[in-house]
Amino acid sequence: MKTYTPKNDEQNWIVVDATGIPLGRLATLIASRIRGKHRPDFTPNMIQGDYVVVLNASLVALTGNKMDGKVYTRYSGYQGGLKTETAREAIAKHPERVIEHAVFGMLPKGRQGRQMHGHLKVYPGSAHPHAAQKPQKLEVR
């Protein structure tokens, strides 16, 4: 009896509009699409997911007090090098990084997760350069 191994030939392009959608709900949907968990032949050791294009990242919603309570930190390695910014400041400066950070935390850690992270394209506005791939629109409820 032979072992069935799915092919990695069918990767679609999906467009998601982030306007008014809560960040966590959007991130879980995107992470499962990038991993390929929506497919009936999902295999955890293969990258079978879709490419996901997120539009209007600057209009993503954060529920409750997360706009001012959620803090993003980074450390330079030097004394006094801990930099912090709230979600409101991060969305104002670079809204695409907020969505990338949320999705990257939901992907597997390691080489495969870094490759999957390359399947995510986030843009702050409604314009994107991926029209040639003929992406399909995905409705989020």
Score class of each variant (00 low, 15 high):
121 K>P: 00
132 A>T: 12
39 R>L: 09
73 T>V: 09
20 G>R: 01
51 Y>D: 06
106 M>N: 02
12 N>Y: 13
39 R>Y: 06
68 D>H: 06
105 G>H: 08
2 K>D: 13
50 D>C: 06
96 E>D: 12
36 G>N: 04
95 P>A: 15
134 K>I: 11
110 G>K: 09
37 K>T: 02
8 N>Y: 08
103 V>G: 07
94 H>G: 06
39 R>I: 11
33 R>F: 11
132 A>S: 15
32 S>Y: 07
9 D>H: 08
11 Q>E: 12
78 Y>M: 12
53 V>T: 01
30 I>V: 13
43 T>E: 12
4 Y>L: 10
133 Q>T: 12
5 T>P: 01
16 V>P: 08
27 A>V: 08
121 K>A: 11
23 L>Y: 10
92 A>W: 01
115 Q>Y: 09
134 K>R: 11
70 K>E: 11
29 L>H: 15
103 V>R: 05
94 H>K: 15
104 F>V: 11
112 Q>P: 03
75 Y>D: 07
96 E>Y: 05
26 L>R: 09
64 G>Y: 01
125 G>P: 10
131 A>N: 12
113 G>Y: 06
86 T>L: 00
66 K>M: 14
92 A>R: 11
66 K>P: 01
70 K>D: 00
135 P>R: 10
31 A>G: 09
59 L>T: 15
127 A>T: 15
80 G>D: 08
119 H>Y: 09
54 V>W: 10
101 H>C: 08
64 G>M: 00
30 I>K: 02
41 D>M: 02
106 M>T: 01
120 L>F: 00
22 P>E: 11
55 L>W: 04
89 E>D: 14
70 K>G: 04
9 D>E: 14
31 A>F: 03
129 P>Q: 05
